[in-house]
Design a protein around this nucleic acid. Structure first.
Length: 529
RNA sequence: GGGCCGGUAGCUCAAUGGCAGAGCACUGCCCUUUUAAGGCAGGGGUUCUGGGUUCGAGUCCCAGCCGGCUCACCA
């Protein structure tokens, strides 16, 4: 903002002139009779004759978005409540003083108008002004009225301007609010209790991620912003809160992308006496409820895809690998080829042979098929030394299958090594009772039968500690009190996390997580000179 | 962090290495049913920053800052 800017100075002068006319430059309140959406809903269908025969007096407020002066009269559109309504201001109707005020108004000013409804010659519902009230001045000019504001940086930094001039932005955040409301509605009806657990934790547990660190002065201790509420919520289940959920922020000190913001909103819920199959069924019902409440339909468009919540697909992680194996990388594994855990390394090599190359084409000079490296193509999978078979399987799965999971798909049976808090399958201890839900190529949910054996949990933590010692900063820390809590007996429990931001992306057709977060994290602006 | 692309008036965008422009917004005048209102006249620029090449740089080169996309990491 540049207060020396001539437009700013000009408008400040006009504000002084408005005050000189006897208007309060910053009045305290304004009693309106209708919001603009109310007027459109209540009177939007009345004909010109009806409005003339039966005059409706209204008093409205809004931000002036357009203005069309005509000498001693003028039209303007006021925006409010996500809608717009035209007002007609003429000298002989509002008087000299209000008309002088109108002449001093700029686009962006907030005004009140009272008058009566009528239809113009072109048929537009309009308020015929009898009084104009000054409510607030826009000292800074609005973006261009036709193209609006497109500079994404300014849109995120100055969301207030974005919201003023890009109506679809408001729709996204109204819908986000509806989504969260529908989730609460559903879980409350299922007998869940909404709780709040610490955002500042002495140990950042419940997920694999690098945390943010902060410091409490009086206690003189470092604290971590939570990466997940998981371990606290399960402590509550130990305590007898059999169905709990929390919708709140998680913080992860990781990269920023179209799918990642350092702080993001997560729903986590835990249900005693349930396993991961129950959670799958619950997830289907929850998402169907949300879609119907918010969209009125189980189907919606996301980017270029038509997505349906009517049916949820199910594959084990290994089945997905087999099914979605890229043809370019050979015939790929069969299910029995993946039975032995270490076999996955062979298939990572097979995958890598094909990555980053164009489709093979017969080359007449050489007499055999060649593949050419693609420019800026994807990279090969590089496994750090010491990568476990389970980690390799998950990495390979993500590279091979994730992009294909457009329709809602549960991927279940995760490797033990990447799941320190999930219960093993009774018939195969290398895998756990865990699933993730993918929609639109994004991971939306993560759930499992909660590991409730304190001895096994300690061993899992010790394995994580080994990873930490080897330099894996995302490996889970040992949480002694959590093991103590489990030692009091955690009922068999199913638990799940759903990313609210990503769910909102799906249901609003947003390509970037920044479009569903009002103030996404950006590098701070340079201080003004 | 790597790769690619971008940054010009308040906003949206132009400008072969040769006088920095248009539309909207703004100012003045005209206009009492317009709607991207209209007509006439006008004001407004550290071309992201700093170097360099050149007679001459918005344009070419180098470095930096900021942003977007993408890859990696992650949810």
């Amino acid at each position: 903002m540049d207060e020396t800017d001539s437009l700013f100075q000009q408008r400040r002068k006009k504000l002084e002139d408005i005050a000189a006319l006897g208007y309060d430059a910053y009045p305290r309140k304004f009693d309106f009779t209708h919001t603009i959406p109310q007027i459109l809903a209540d009177f939007g269908h009345r004909s010109a004759e009806e409005l003339e025969a039966h005059r409706i007096a209204v008093r409205i407020a809004g931000r002036m978005m357009t203005v069309r002066p005509h000498g001693k009269a003028g039209f303007a559109h006021l925006a409010g409540g996500g809608a717009k309504l035209q007002v007609y201001i003429r000298l002989d109707a509002v008087g000299e003083r209000d008309f002088a005020l109108y002449k001093l108004l700029d686009l962006g000013d907030v005004i009140g108008v009272d008058g009566y409804l009528f239809r113009t010659r072109t048929g537009e519902l309009t308020v015929h002004a009898e009084h104009v009230h000054f409510l607030a001045k826009a000292l800074l000019p609005l973006p261009e009225k036709w193209h609006g504001l497109t500079d994404v940086e300014i849109r995120y930094r100055q969301r207030y301007v974005d919201l003023m001039v890009n109506p679809e932005v408001r729709v996204v955040f109204e819908r986000r609010s509806k989504i969260v409301r529908a989730i609460r509605q559903f879980l409350d009806a299922e007998g869940y209790l909404e709780v709040e657990t610490p955002m500042m934790q002495p140990l950042a547990g419940g997920a694999m991620a690098r945390p943010f660190v902060t410091h409490h002065n009086t206690l003189d201790i470092d604290l971590f912003l939570r990466i997940a509420p998981e371990l606290y919520l399960k402590r509550l289940t130990v305590g007898g809160l059999d169905r709990v959920y929390e919708i709140n922020r998680n913080f992860r000190n990781e990269g920023i992308s179209t799918q990642h913001n350092p702080e993001f909103t997560m729903l986590e819920f835990y249900q005693a006496y349930a396993d991961y199959h129950d959670m799958m069924a619950l997830t289907e019902r929850l998402l169907q409820h949300v879609a119907l409440e918010v969209l009125g339909s189980l189907e919606f468009d996301y980017v270029d895809e038509r997505i349906s919540f009517a049916e949820f697909h199910r594959y084990t992680m290994r089945e997905a690998l087999v099914k979605f194996w890229p043809p370019l990388a050979g015939t790929g594994p069969k299910l029995e080829n993946l039975a032995e855990p270490r076999a996955v390394f062979h298939w990572v090599d097979e995958f890598n042979k094909a990555v980053g190359y164009e489709t093979a084409k017969p080359n007449p000079l050489l007499g055999y098929d060649v593949v050419a490296p693609t420019e800026g193509g994807e990279k090969q999978i590089e496994l750090p030394s010491g990568t476990s078979p389970g980690e390799a399987l998950q990495i390979l799965f993500e590279r091979v299958a994730e992009r294909h999971l457009i329709q809602p798909t549960f991927i279940y049976e995760f490797p033990l090594e990447v799941s320190p808090l999930a219960k093993q399958k009774p018939d195969d201890p290398n895998y756990v009772e865990r699933f993730e839900l993918f929609v639109g190529g994004m991971e939306i949910a993560n759930a499992f039968s909660e590991l409730n054996d304190p001895k096994e949990q300690r061993n899992r933590f010790l394995y994580q500690q080994l990873l930490r010692d080897k330099g894996d900063l995302t490996a889970h820390a040992i949480d002694g009190d959590y093991i103590r809590a489990l030692s009091y007996g955690l009922p068999p429990t199913g638990g799940e996390g759903i990313g609210i931001d990503r769910l909102t992306m799906l249901l609003t057709g947003s390509r970037s997580i920044r479009d569903v977060i009002l103030f996404p994290l950006l590098r701070p602006e340079k201080p003004a000179q």
